[in-house]
Design a protein around this nucleic acid. Structure first.
Length: 271
DNA sequence: ATGGTGGTTAGACCA
């Protein structure tokens, strides 16, 4: 086993519609592992053979019809662990797998946190209540993971931009779902509970602006640049010191028929 | 204050 691991996360917004974009990214960057969210693909319709041909012969998937769905694609052997029912719902928002063996093995957890709807009030908006409950569950998960599994990696579309410079305007977005205080505080508490290392923010500390998502609804996304950092790669306590590099593939937002999210790729040493 | 653009799948629902 090589002593580095490169792992990417990407909300693809339909893996079948955008299979060519995923294959292009894999061909160009060759990450060891790619975690997808919003595959929107039932398990029996997952495009296994396309990934097989691309060299991603090891996969763990959890999909349902129409919504959500997560997948872990790997060039190296993996052992699927579980697809958790977060908030007691079988709605395909988590999948995990073990990569490698022995002392260098790591556990990858791929999460898709609920977007939370438009109204930032849990009493008025059940989707926002669901999101807050999901974050609370992530807190308990992280607290347990910190002690049980220091070689864990948590990635995914967490649908929260926790820091001031994770959004184009902190003040203007304070009451916009994804950057409200209850969400940003909650996500920072998840990080604290797990002692997670926020990989991209180690490499690009505040106040640099870092985004991974630009709304479909905003025309001229590139010049206006009204982005948010919703996609994250967190390293467990035993892996944080190995962080080597990270990259956000903003250019994919300009590809034909793009996802509204772009890939985030992190490379780390495993020893 | 509002509406703006996408995907799934067949009328809404979700982002």
């Amino acid at each position: 086993m090589p002593d580095t691991l490169s792992i990417a996360t990407w909300n693809i917004n339909s893996v079948r519609l955008r299979i060519d974009l995923v294959l292009r990214f894999l061909a160009e960057q060759q990450p060891d592992v790619l975690c997808l969210q919003e595959t929107k693909c039932p398990n029996d319709l997952f495009p296994h053979s396309a990934f097989e041909k691309a060299g991603y012969r090891h996969r763990a998937i959890a999909g349902i019809k129409g919504y959500n769905g997560v997948a872990i694609l790997s060039k190296r052997p993996i052992e699927p662990i579980e697809a958790r029912n977060m908030c007691d719902k079988p709605d395909a928002r988590h999948i995990s797998a073990r990569i490698g063996t022995g002392a260098k093995a790591v556990t990858v957890h791929n999460f898709y946190v609920p977007a939370g709807g438009d109204i930032a009030d849990p009493d008025e908006n059940p989707k926002f209540a669901h999101k807050l409950a999901f974050v609370e569950e992530l807190k308990r998960f992280s607290d347990a993971s910190r002690t049980d599994d220091p070689r864990a990696i948590l990635v995914g579309d967490l649908n929260i931009a926790p820091l001031e410079h994770d959004v184009w305007s902190h003040k203007k977005l304070l009451d916009v779902v994804s950057h409200t205080p209850v969400e940003t505080t909650g996500l920072l508490e998840v990080i604290a509970a797990g002692d997670w290392v926020d990989a991209m923010r180690v490499l690009k500390p505040e106040p640099e602006k870092v985004y991974s998502w630009w709304s479909y609804r905003s025309p001229d996304w590139e010049t206006r640049d009204l982005g948010r950092r919703l996609d994250h790669v967190w390293l467990g306590k035993g892996l944080g010191a190995g962080l080597q590099s990270g990259q956000i593939f903003r250019e994919t937002r300009g590809w034909e028929r793009p996802s509204d999210h772009v890939p985030v790729l992190v490379t780390l040493a495993l020893d």
